[in-house]
Amino acid sequence: MEKPKIRVLIADDHIIFRTGLKSLLLSMPQIELLGEASDGSELVSLAQQLFPDVILVDIIMPVMDGIHATRELCRSIPGCRIIALSVSGQESMIMDMLEAGALGYLLKNADNQEIENAISAVYQHRPYFCKEITGKITEVIAKYQSGDTSFLITFTDREKEIIHMICEEYTSKEIARLLFLSKRTIEGHRTRIMNKMGVKSIAGIITYALEKGLYKVDS
Results as ranks from 00 to 15, higher is better:
Ala121Gly: 05
Ala121Ile: 13
Ala121Tyr: 08
Val122Asn: 10
Val122Thr: 10
Val122Ala: 12
Val122His: 14
Val122Tyr: 07
Val122Arg: 05
Tyr123Lys: 13
Tyr123Pro: 02
Tyr123Phe: 15
Tyr123Gly: 13
Tyr123Ser: 13
Tyr123Val: 12
Gln124Met: 14
Gln124Asn: 07
His125Tyr: 14
His125Ile: 08
His125Met: 09
His125Thr: 15
His125Arg: 11
Arg126Thr: 09
Arg126Gln: 15
Arg126Met: 13
Pro127Met: 13
Pro127Gln: 07
Pro127Leu: 15
Tyr128Phe: 15
Tyr128Asn: 06
Tyr128Ala: 03
Phe129Pro: 09
Phe129Trp: 12
Cys130Val: 06
Cys130Met: 12
Cys130Gln: 14
Cys130Arg: 01
Cys130Tyr: 14
Lys131Pro: 00
Glu132Lys: 15
Glu132Ile: 00
Glu132Ala: 15
Glu132Gly: 05
Ile133Glu: 09
Ile133Cys: 04
Ile133Val: 15
Ile133Gly: 09
Ile133Trp: 08
Thr134His: 00
Thr134Val: 04
Thr134Met: 11
Lys136Tyr: 02
Lys136Gln: 01
Lys136Arg: 15
Lys136Val: 08
Lys136His: 05
Ile137Tyr: 10
Ile137Phe: 09
Ile137His: 02
Thr138Ile: 04
Thr138Ala: 07
Glu139Ala: 09
Glu139Cys: 00
Glu139Asn: 15
Glu139Arg: 12
Glu139Lys: 09
Val140Gln: 08
Val140Trp: 07
Val140Gly: 06
Ile141Ser: 14
Ile141Asp: 04
Ile141Trp: 01
Ile141Tyr: 08
Ala142Glu: 13
Ala142Lys: 10
Ala142Tyr: 06
Ala142Arg: 12
Ala142Asn: 10
Lys143Thr: 04
Lys143Val: 00
Lys143Pro: 04
Lys143Gln: 15
Tyr144Phe: 10
Tyr144Leu: 03
Tyr144Pro: 03
Gln145Ile: 05
Gln145Trp: 06
Gln145Phe: 00
Gln145Val: 03
Ser146Thr: 12
Ser146Asn: 05
Ser146Glu: 11
Ser146Leu: 13
Gly147Val: 05
Gly147Trp: 02
Gly147Ala: 06
Asp148Asn: 14
Asp148Gln: 01
Asp148Ile: 04
Thr149Val: 08
Thr149Phe: 08
Thr149Met: 12
Phe151Pro: 09
Leu152Phe: 01
Leu152Thr: 05
Leu152His: 01
Leu152Gln: 12
